[in-house]
């Protein structure tokens, strides 16, 4: 009997049945919300009343009159940039040592611990540790005669603190992504490089880094997107304070919506932030890819 070719189109209605939940979900929780969000951004709406169409006024207000909004965009950049610029190299460095260490199970468990912890606990744990006067860190610094900074009550330090905690939270995950990439590299390549007399530095720049570039691009862009839109940690840790110093845009729009009940303006703000993230992610992706 001649072997029949496999017919991937032979499922009849089955694929559509399998996809039904996804399609329903995509409609109700993806397409409609996006459309609704865009529509809302052209309205003024206190949801205890009815929405009224205001055209581009919300965007106009945010762009031209709302200084706090611009400040929040700036804070968002500082947060995301600090997170990427410090966090990515750090987890790459950790991955180098981790991938060459014994006892991986133990190290992995320890470094992955923050990822398992809910963000409220993370925020509060660090509030305790960073307490100006009686937190563990400033007590430790005090023991060696240093006056620690006011980690959470000084505006500039508060931003540093939330960035550091965010890095602490994510370092383990990115370290594992990088080490997976590093371990994917054949040892023969290194042996070959060594035989050719390549210096360690040269091996690093010419062999290792190009090979992990995809992982590097992945981690950098996802970290950037995460950093730009993540506000749970800041909400629980500083509430955007002190004096608005850690108020990032996603948090600002959240509070605008659910504290001040300005749904229209909040939607407009969220869309602006999303547009910024989208454009920058694409640029970043192009730039990182382009050097290949």
């Amino acid at each position: 009997m001649p072997r029949r070719e496999f017919d991937p189109g032979g499922g009849g209605a089955a694929p559509w049945v399998f996809l039904a939940p996804l399609i329903a979900f995509a409609a109700v929780f993806f397409v409609i919300p996006l459309g609704f969000s865009i529509w809302l951004s052209f309205t003024r709406w206190n949801p205890l009343g009815t929405p009224s169409w205001v055209g581009l006024r919300q965007f106009e207000y945010l762009f031209t009159r709302d200084g706090d909004f611009w400040r929040s965009i700036l804070n968002t950049f500082v947060f995301a940039f600090g997170f990427v610029a410090l966090g990515v190299p750090l987890s790459l460095g950790l991955a180098f040592v981790f991938s060459r260490a014994r006892g991986k199970t133990l190290w992995r468990s320890v470094y992955y611990l923050p990822q398992l912890t809910n963000i409220v606990a993370i925020a509060y744990l660090w509030q305790f540790v960073l307490d100006d006067r009686y937190g563990a860190i400033n007590r430790l610094l005090g023991m060696v005669g240093l006056a620690g900074p006011n980690w959470l009550s000084d505006p500039a330090m508060a931003m540093v603190s939330v960035v550091l905690v965010m890095i602490w939270y994510d370092a383990g995950k990115n370290m594992l992504v990088f080490s997976a990439a590093l371990e994917g590299v054949d040892r023969e390549i290194y042996d070959a490089a060594a035989l050719d007399g390549a210096s360690p530095l040269r091996t690093l720049t010419s062999v290792t880094l190009p090979i992990i570039r995809p992982a590097f691009i992945f981690v950098t862009i996802t970290s950037f997107i995460t950093g730009m839109g993540f506000f749970a940690l800041i909400l629980a840790m500083t509430g955007g304070g002190p004096r608005g110093a850690t108020e990032v845009t996603a948090l600002y729009t959240y509070q605008m919506a659910f504290e001040s009940l300005r749904m229209g303006r909040a939607s407009a703000g969220a869309l602006i932030l999303f547009a910024i993230i989208g454009v920058l992610s694409i640029l970043q992706f192009r730039a990182l890819r382009g050097r290949e």
Partner: peptide, 27 residues
């Protein structure tokens, strides 16, 4: 399976991952 619209749905699955959650809270 192969069926009309598969590519589009796959693009949606990949693309939708790029949308941050804060965008969806209000709607």
């Amino acid at each position: 399976y192969e069926f009309g619209g598969r590519a589009a749905i796959f693009r949606l699955v990949v693309g939708a991952q790029m949308f941050p959650f804060f965008l969806f809270i209000i709607p």
